[in-house]
């Protein structure tokens, strides 16, 4: 299923785009999204393990199903303040 996500900070720079579309099964979880991201954008590999995933405005848990969602965001650890 077409799955849309926004990218921020170093993840956006490494991919070279602020948004991505991936094809994921409906049952896909955060772990599968990481794998798919790494295959789509090998430049993200050093960052993959630390990437956080949000659905809407909430952090996804490891078991959240995200396939087919269009309101995902993927970003490295935060550093505001």
């Amino acid at each position: 299923m077409k799955t849309k996500l926004k990218l921020f900070a170093k993840a956006r720079d490494l991919v070279g785009a602020a948004e991505l579309e991936l094809d994921l099964p409906e049952s896909a979880t955060v772990a599968e999204l990481r794998t798919a991201l790494g295959e789509h954008s090998p430049a993200l590999q050093p960052l993959l393990a630390s990437l956080l995933v949000a659905v809407g405005t909430d952090y996804a848990s490891p078991t959240t199903r995200i396939g087919g969602r269009t309101d995902l965001a993927v970003f490295p650890p935060v550093s505001g303040g």
């Binding site: 921020f8 170093k10 956080l52 490295p76 935060v78 550093s79 505001g80």
Partner: peptide, 11 residues
């Protein structure tokens, strides 16, 4: 907590 959870990044 802001520094832990709020999605803001500095370069």
């Amino acid at each position: 907590r802001l520094k832990e959870v709020v999605p803001i990044w500095k370069k």
